[in-house]
Amino acid sequence: MTGGPEKHERLAERQDPGGEPAEQPIVSMLPSTPGRKVSTKKLVFTPIVIALALVGTYLWITNIPLDSIERNSLSGGAVRQALWQQIKLVVYSTFFVLVIAIPLGIALTRRPLRKAAPVATAIANLGQSIPSIGLLALLTFWLGIGPGTALVGMVAYAVLPVLSNTMVGLRAIDPSLVDAARGIGMSGWGVLRKVELPLAVPLILAGVRNALVLNVGTGTLAGFVSGGGLGTIITNGIVTQRTRVLIVGSVLAVALALLVDWLASLAELQMTPHGLEAG
């Protein structure tokens, strides 16, 4: 899983205003513009790799003899169900992460709550520094087993990147811009909606992307607490000592993670406000 130092590196990299000043007007939204986070190569390359991996695994698994246990574990229905559960877990947990982390991040950068920010970050950090499997195991003592427990664990785990990126994004805004916005007569809500949030969007989105990928990863652990998902196939593979089952489950999980990251990068590209591109 993504560790602390690496994450900070990524934050720092995103905060960097891009280095070279834009000499010539940058009008195009082309991803090849220097300073973009997503290169054209990656845009095309990632889906091709995913497709190749999936097709290859499919051809391999349908063309070798399987024993009954393997056939059961890898029947179309079982795989489809596991995949669907996994996607649902990711979607739901991400939804809750957004609903919790973004408003919380906004609230913690407002003046009345600014002092509480370190406490909140510390708690969120705690959620992430516990190993995810340990967190899930602990949660089962409290909530029992099932998809609900898995969901709580995933949310606790993924809140931090979104929360900290929201806060960093809002704090990194040039104070003179907020001053100007207030000075020309925007209300506090207007400043937030029209100036602060749009300017923080790139960083918030980076956090969301991070959270999504984390969620796909943590989602595979849901299998351990009977939460369903691709983790079930992987655990089956381990328990019944069927490596092929294990491989199919893992390939699917990896492909899903890459796909989600790719989709998120598209969204990032689409949602970054114009005028902020090379920055």
Binding site: A180, G183, I184, G185, V195, H274, G275, G279
Partner: peptide
């Protein structure tokens, strides 16, 4: 104060233009 400020022009150093708006 919000209504007051809309009646008063305000220009600052470094222009304070919003970078995400034309």
């Amino acid at each position: 104060p919000v209504r007051l400020r809309r009646r008063i022009g305000y220009a600052i150093q470094s222009s304070g233009l919003f970078p995400h708006m034309t």
